[in-house]
């Protein structure tokens, strides 16, 4: 199941990244919000990976090259603005995608119908913070601008067709661009210039080609399972 792996890996990897914020978020309330989003995503990942095989084996015993997640979700947390920009780009995509899947009659419709409510919240959270950081202080504006620019090159990959998903990707992409443009505008930020895909971004997470930091993330995530193979917990 190519599609289950792709969507499941997106959710799993981003969930792990957000989990890294535990104990480090700017304020206690935000810590809870990020953990909530991470838990939602982990729940989605479990369902999706279970469709594709054994969830633990898939999460903990695959090599980097076998992961099918977008390069966007594996990007390091960076500062809070980077995390929010990543959330904005991804949750807008995930919300539009799940709404479409939920409306269809494909195998992912029931799952998407459940996830779409969670994802709507994630999107709202990201938009709220984009507005506050972009239209906040001079420093927060500059950091948010830098974050949006830095992650822009990973956004083209979002709309590569995924085998097994009956989606009008071009339409999804234009709605995504429209939504992100509107939010950035309200946040007094400009839409980043520069290509959204290109040789220099590889843009091939779905094919198992990942960026440098992903290997280190996996090493940490899989360490225990690999040290004690076959253990149950």
């Amino acid at each position: 199941m190519t599609a289950a792996l792709a969507l499941g890996d997106d959710a799993l990897v981003l969930s792990h990244r957000l989990g890294e914020w535990a104990g480090h978020a700017p304020v206690l309330e935000e810590e809870v919000a990020l953990a909530n989003i991470a838990l939602d995503l982990l729940g989605q990942a479990r369902v999706l990976l279970s469709l594709a095989g054994d969830e633990d084996e898939l999460a903990f015993l695959r090599e980097e090259r076998s992961f099918r997640n977008l390069q966007l979700v594996e990007q390091p947390n960076g500062d809070f603005a980077h995390t929010i920009a990543r959330q904005l780009y991804f949750s807008t995509y995930q919300h539009l995608l799940h709404a479409e899947l939920a409306a269809g009659d494909g195998p992912f419709a029931p799952l998407a119908a459940k996830a779409v409510k969670e994802v709507a919240y994630h999107r709202d959270h990201a938009e709220q913070w984009t507005l506050r950081l972009g239209d906040g202080t001079e420093t927060s504006h500059e950091r948010m601008r830098r974050a949006c620019d830095a992650l822009w090159r990973f956004t083209g990959e979002l709309f590569q067709p995924v085998e097994g998903l009956d989606v009008d990707w071009a339409d999804l992409e234009s709605r995504w661009v429209e939504s992100v443009t509107r939010v950035l505008g309200r946040a007094t930020l400009t839409v980043p210039e520069g290509p959204r895909t290109g040789a220099w971004s590889a843009g091939a997470g779905r094919q198992g080609v990942h960026t440098e930091s992903f290997g280190r993330m996996l090493a940490e995530m899989q360490h225990l399972h690999r040290s004690h193979p076959g253990a149950s917990w």
């Binding site: 304020v27 809870v32 506050r132």
Partner: peptide, 15 residues
């Protein structure tokens, strides 16, 4: 604690 009412609502929802 929240910076404004809208985020206070969202935080309340989580907490």
């Amino acid at each position: 604690h929240a910076p404004d009412a809208e985020l206070a609502l969202r935080n309340a929802r989580d907490l």
